[in-house]
Design a protein around this nucleic acid. Structure first.
Ligand SMILES: [Mn+2]
Ligand SMILES: [Mn+2]
Ligand SMILES: [Mn+2]
Ligand SMILES: [Mn+2]
Lengths: 157, 157
DNA sequence: TATTATATGTAGCCTTCGCTACACATGTTG
DNA sequence: CAACATGTGTAGCGAAGGCTACATATAATA
C-alpha cells in the first residue's frame, strides 16, 4: 500500500505540476514574510493612534492596546528602532520616524478599508473589527482595491 | 508640547475608553493566537493534498510546497506530533491523525471559500490565491458565512 | 519634601520557526 | 551487489516574540 508516485519517481514531476508547486511555495513564502511586517504595522498603527489621541505614545499604553506586557513592547520597539520606524530616548515616549509615519498611515488606511468592507458585507461590528486585525496584513493592493470598489458600489445605490 | 493626557492622568481612562482599549487588546491577542495555528493548518492542508494526489506525504514534498527546507519541516512535524495532528515512523512518510484530518478538512474548506470569494469580487486568480493563503487564517465563522453568502448571491443571478 | 504610585529598563528564561552542515537510511540503477 | 541519488535525521546556530522578576526612574500626592 501507499505506492510511491512522487519524489524519486518522476511521474508527478512534470513541468506543469512543478510550476504549480513553485507557485504554492511562493504564496506561502509571501505569507510568512507578511507576518514579519504584521507586528511592525500593528505597532506603528497603535503608536500613531496614541500620538493623535494623547499627544504621545508610551510603552504602557502600547502594551495595553496590544495585549502584551511592557517588556515585550520595549524589546519590539528596539527592533523597530533598528529598522528606523520609530525613535526613542531613555525614559521618554516613543516617536515615529518619517518612514514609521508613512507605514502607520498606510496601515491605518488599509485597516479602515478592511473594516468598512467587512461591515458592508453584513458582518457584525465585533467580528469585522476582530477579523480585520489579521486580514489587513494579507491584502494585496489589488484585493484592497476590490474591497474599496465594493464599498463604493454598496453606497451608491 | 506633547502634553500628557494618558497614563497617570485619568482623563483618558474613563470606563468607555477602557473597554474600547480592552477590546482592541483582545483582538490583537486573538490575531496572535491565530498565527500559532496558521502553520499547523498550512501543514495539515498540504499533507492532506499530498496524500490525495500521491498516496503519501513525504517531508521533501511538504518542504517544496511550503517553500522551506526539509529540516524546518521535520522540526515542525515534531511539534504537530506532540499536538496529535500527525504521526510518523522513522524513515517513513507522514500521516494525519483523526484530529489532523479534521483540521485539514476545515482548512481546505475555508481556503476554497476564501479563494472563490476573492475571485467573485473580481480579484485575479494569482492575487486571490496569494492573498487567500494569509487571509484564510483570520476569517471567523461569521465572516466565512458572509463570504459564502456573497458567492451564492453572485452565482444566482 | 518625602512617600507612594506608576513607568521604564534589564537580566534571563522559554518557544517557535528559520537556516547550514553533516551523518545516516533508503531507493534506483548500472 | 555496488555505486549513486535521493530522502531523512540530528547538531547547533540565529532571530523574534513572548514571559517573570527585579532594579531604577519619573510623576503624583500627602
Ligand atoms: Mn493587525
Ligand atoms: Mn490594525
Ligand atoms: Mn495559509
Ligand atoms: Mn491554505
Amino acid at each position: 500500500m501507499a505506492r510511491r508516485i512522487s519524489p524519486q519517481n518522476p511521474e508527478s514531476r512534470n513541468t506543469t505540476d512543478g510550476r504549480r508547486v513553485e507557485q504554492q511555495a511562493e504564496n506561502h513564502r509571501r505569507t510568512r514574510k507578511a507576518h514579519l511586517s504584521e507586528i511592525a504595522e500593528d505597532y506603528v498603527e497603535v503608536i500613531a493612534e496614541l500620538i493623535d489621541s494623547n499627544g504621545e505614545a508610551r510603552a504602557v499604553d502600547i502594551a495595553r492596546r496590544l495585549g502584551v506586557t511592557h517588556v515585550t513592547v520595549v524589546k519590539t520597539i528596539a527592533r523597530l528602532v533598528r529598522e528606523d520606524l520609530v525613535s526613542t530616548k531613555p525614559y521618554r515616549s516613543i516617536f515615529l520616524t518619517d518612514a514609521g509615519r508613512q507605514l502607520a498611515e498606510k496601515a491605518r488606511h488599509r485597516h479602515q478599508i478592511v473594516v468598512r468592507f467587512l461591515k458592508s458585507l453584513g458582518v457584525s461590528d465585533a467580528a469585522a473589527n476582530a477579523d480585520a486585525e489579521g486580514i489587513e496584513h494579507h491584502v494585496s493592493a489589488e484585493t484592497l482595491q476590490a474591497f474599496e470598489q465594493y464599498c463604493r458600489r454598496m453606497n451608491h445605490e
